[in-house]
């Protein structure tokens, strides 16, 4: 098991190098360090010396990918790409182009993101699974049919409409909660409740339908027929056997997204003005702060890979038939 994890982690290194290379190339194809310096210095008439000193100060003075002046391995290491990338691997994000400490920013902005993402995940999971069980219990009736129609209709509504509609109804019409904003500590709950509700509602359509399919697939298995033949009641079959077995794909599906919860949601955070990592990223994109974007891409890629490894591990925990080699 340990050997497996170590091997998977080693596999991650070339992937992360590739990710860094892609973001790096994308950003510098059109946006040279000189352009960045000009944009950050913010003046039309910037002198050459000012640009040079900005590049020196922020570490953009070297060649991009290949340094012909250096000798040996230095041709690859004495470049912007190497120097900016290598520090990411020990999670030293450095400072942003405006001089703020990215690691500190991320550690601080992580919590509001989690404060939305975790309740959305848990409440959504609980609601979707119960609703799906209810539908399966009443399968092939009008309740089933009407629910499926409702779910497909809910899936077909853009997430933007849920946000806009929710803000309009709850905040503007009924004045129940503030439209957007954030507060520190426990006072934050009234700012969080609306994004959480909307997050859960917008996930119902796809989520419940997926769980319903899982349950229906499970319910046509042989062991279910055996359980019924033993004389178990339908609810015992559903909760004792079907739910338990269907939890395997559900759990592994959840594990994959767990690490990515840290990244927050780009859309709802910027809609509700919550200072999480999602809005951090959007702000960085809009101000073309390459250091932050690179850090966030790297973080996202790491978390994605961690998610994949965790999924494989979780299989061995919930399903004794799976052995990792």
């Amino acid at each position: 098991m340990t050997a497996y994890i170590i091997r998977r982690l080693l596999y991650a290194i070339p992937i992360l190098i590739g990710v860094n290379l892609i973001t790096f190339v994308l950003f510098f194809v059109v946006n040279s360090p000189d352009d960045m310096a000009r944009m950050q210095l913010g003046d039309k008439r910037v002198t050459e010396t000012a640009i040079e000193s900005w590049k020196q100060a922020h570490g953009y003075a070297k060649p991009l990918l290949y340094n012909p002046e250096a000798a040996g391995i230095g041709r690859l290491t004495e470049t912007i790409f190497f120097e900016k990338s290598i520090r990411l691997f020990i999670f030293d994000f450095g400072s942003s182009d405006t001089g703020r400490d990215i690691g500190h920013d991320i550690a601080q902005r992580m919590w509001p993101s989690l404060a939305i993402a975790v309740p959305v995940l848990l409440v959504g999971l609980a609601f979707n699974i119960s609703y799906a069980l209810l539908i399966v219990f009443f399968r092939a009736t009008y309740i089933d049919f009407a629910s499926v129609v409702l779910l497909v209709a809910m899936m077909s509504v853009s997430g933007l409409f849920y946000i806009i509609g929710g803000q309009f109804l709850l905040s503007k019409l009924f004045h129940l909660v503030p439209i957007s904003g954030y507060d520190t500590g426990l006072q934050a709950w009234k700012f969080l409740i609306l994004p959480v509700i909307i997050g859960v509602i917008s996930g119902i359509g796809a989520g419940t339908r997926w769980y319903r399919t899982l349950f229906l697939e499970e319910i046509s298995r042989d062991y279910v027929r055996t359980a019924r033949a033993k004389g178990l009641s339908e609810s015992r079959v559903l909760f004792g056997h079907v739910l338990k077995n269907a939890l395997i794909p559900i759990l592994t599906g959840v594990v994959v997204v767990l690490p990515l919860l840290f990244m927050g949601s780009l859309i709802s955070e910027s809609f509700f003005g919550i200072p999480g990592l999602g809005s951090y990223t959007i702000d960085a994109i809009n101000s073309q702060d390459f250091a932050i974007v690179r850090a966030m891409v790297f973080l996202g890629a790491v978390l994605y890979i961690v998610g994949l490894i965790l999924t494989d591990l979780s299989y061995t925990f919930v399903d004794p038939r799976v052995r990792l080699a």
């Binding site: 992937i15 990710v19 892609i22 973001t23 994308l26 059109v30 946006n31 974007v293 994605y304």
Partner: peptide
């Protein structure tokens, strides 16, 4: 390797970077 690498980049960030690139190219 190619598709795992592309997949691990958060989609929105990749799109944002590419669109920014295009905007800069178009204005130049």
């Amino acid at each position: 390797y190619i598709y795992t690498t592309l997949n691990s980049i958060p989609g929105v960030l990749l799109i944002a970077a590419a669109i920014l690139l295009l905007e800069v190219y178009m204005s130049n």
